[in-house]
Amino acid sequence: MSSFEKNFRRGIVRSNPTFVLMLGLCPTLAVSTSLDNAIGMTAAFVFVLVASNILISLIHGLVPNKVRIPVFIVIIATLVSIVDLMMQGFVPALSKSLGIYLPLITVNCIVLGRAEAFASKHGVLDSMADALGIGTGFGLAILLLSFIRQLLGTGKLDLFGHHLFTIPGFSENPVSVLMLPMGAFLVVGTLLALFRWMGVTKNE
């Protein structure tokens, strides 16, 4: 297995940011109320993570140790602001429903964590693979969460305004607590237990 492939694969299951590292749970819990939000968040997140990992691995030889963290934060914050402005301009509805959680990618511990732990020590290609892997792991987790929450919490599935299907009889009395913050914790906790029980993930 090439090192690119190895670094890419690691983030998806073995160090999945949500279910194994349990990092960046705040936006994951908050925006996983609908598939639309999950897709928008994943797109923004993967862009910021990949771009920041590439930029930081490019300049890591030049960065003075003392100002390492400020430099990383400036780079990440700039990238997030770019995404934020673009979303406001081109997909205003999505930008509105993601709300504060889009700018908050700046302080997302996964992004800074990968910059500090991986990109500042590895080459461009490996850093890119790592970012893509972690991004995929994050995306799969938030998509799974939002799928379960939307399906059981509203009894139907909608995707970007298109109605996919309704569970007959169920949509009149859906488990609406799942759409609330408490439901997010319940679903994450249950999935975490389920994945451990099935042996998919292990405690690191």
């Binding site: 009395n173 859906p174 488990v175 609406s176 607590v177 799942l178 609330l180 408490m182």
Partner: peptide
Amino acid sequence: FVTVSFAG
């Protein structure tokens, strides 16, 4: 749980 979910 049921109060919050099935208030109706």
